[in-house]
Design a protein around this nucleic acid. Structure first.
Lengths: 223, 223
DNA sequence: GGCAAACACGAGAGATCGCTCGCGTTTCTC
DNA sequence: GAGAAACGCGAGCGATCTCTCGTGTTTGCC
């Protein structure tokens, strides 16, 4: 998962013998990359992507601008690599748990665990929210965000379709989008607070979702 | 350094005896201002505040950059004037209706009319949403947004306190913030769609709020 | 030790943007 | 009609940002 230094989007040249593999990283280089990504996360969090200057990221990491460009071809690549690593970390931490939607699980439990897990991840990696929901994310990150968004929507749709077997697909899709919008708004409030207040907002977010979805759940409970 | 209008604190060094003697505008100038603000609204909507260049605004308005600066001291002043006019328009259209919170109104009706009015205004002036909830709004606009936000929160608080007489103020405040967050997220979804689909999302937004607040309303209905 | 490649530096090229300045044109006022 | 002031223009200044380049240092491998 290291950075492909090739000019354009052609990657996946890891194992096969290829003529285009110009960079052989040393341990020092890998350390610098991690250092730079950490610095970038900090700067992106405080100023956003566009306002963050590459010189500021280099300064935060304690290296020169030239060193930064030894490892990243441009500013966008920094955000992309950071986003990729965050995505990978999220999938590794919760991927399997989120992929499996057990139809037997009650709605309340599904909402509780999903919210808990996503809130937990976003609290530990605040830059994820800043990059994903930021207004000025570069094209590649926006694509990743859209992909994640679409994945979550379809996952919610399958979850909902269990409770709404005879509802038009368009309606289910709309409800899923509303759920994601609520989650996003709630997450913003949760991240804006700390300690007990944060917990209270988490509780509130769950309540909003549960009360919104309660009429749907009751349909199956009262045949 | 050589900015003619000085920094934020100091204003108008030229003649301090007069209280703000602005330029005496001609009818042509007023027309140009309206033209420039309209162009700015268009550019802000599509690119956001930071990415919008003053040259692009001037080009969109069909004038030269120098002409733009005949009427606005700097880029921020354009957004401020635009924001002020939008605020004024909003207050003139719905100000009185929103200020009065009749305790006798049922919760459902209050939510319906409030959502309808705000959605209507934001659909007619999409730049309002772009400026207010944009990530990179300049200081003065952010202040105006915070002021509006605080006003709306306290208005929701007074509305809620009628239904929750014996609830800690902190809890009421939190619920009000959640309501605003829901509204904001719903508005984003509404603005992203058109026609019948937009109407459906408006209905959904109202449902989210009503179901979230329903348990509170029932407390007074079942003493 | 010796060599090539990876790493590190920082000045600055190139581009963009906010904003200015000098000068010409239109409009108001008398 | 004449003078003043508002309006209009657009080249370009200064600041800032991304990214490069030439050069010097460190590391891996024989």
């Amino acid at each position: 998962m290291s950075i492909a230094f090739g000019e354009l989007g052609t990657k996946q040249v890891s194992d096969h013998q290829e003529k285009e593999q110009p960079r052989r990283r040393q341990a020092r280089g890998e350390r610098r990359i991690a250092q730079l990504l950490e610095a970038a996360a900090s700067v992106f969090c405080t100023t956003g992507y566009t306002a963050a200057s590459t010189n500021a990221i280099a300064r935060e990491a304690g290296v020169s601008p030239g060193t930064l460009y030894q490892f990243f071809p441009n500013k966008e690549a920094i955000a992309i690599e950071l986003g990729d690593r965050l995505m990978h970390e999220m999938r590794e931490t919760y991927g399997e748990a989120l992929a499996t939607v057990d139809p037997a699980t009650p709605l309340e439990e599904a909402v509780e665990t999903a919210v808990d897990r996503f809130v937990d991840f976003n609290c530990r990696r605040p830059v994820f929210f800043a990059l994903m929901h930021g207004p000025d994310t570069p094209g590649r990150i926006a694509e990743a965000h859209d992909a994640l968004h679409a994945t979550l929507v379809s996952r919610i749709e399958t979850l909902l379709s269990g409770f709404l077997p005879d509802t038009p697909a368009a309606d289910v899709n709309r409800i899923a989008h509303v759920c994601l919008g609520i989650y996003k708004a709630g997450l913003e409030l949760v991240l804006a607070h700390e300690g007990a207040e944060r917990e209270a907002y988490v509780r509130e977010l769950k309540d909003v979702l549960l009360r919104y979805l309660a009429p749907l759940a009751h349909r199956t409970l009262t045949p």
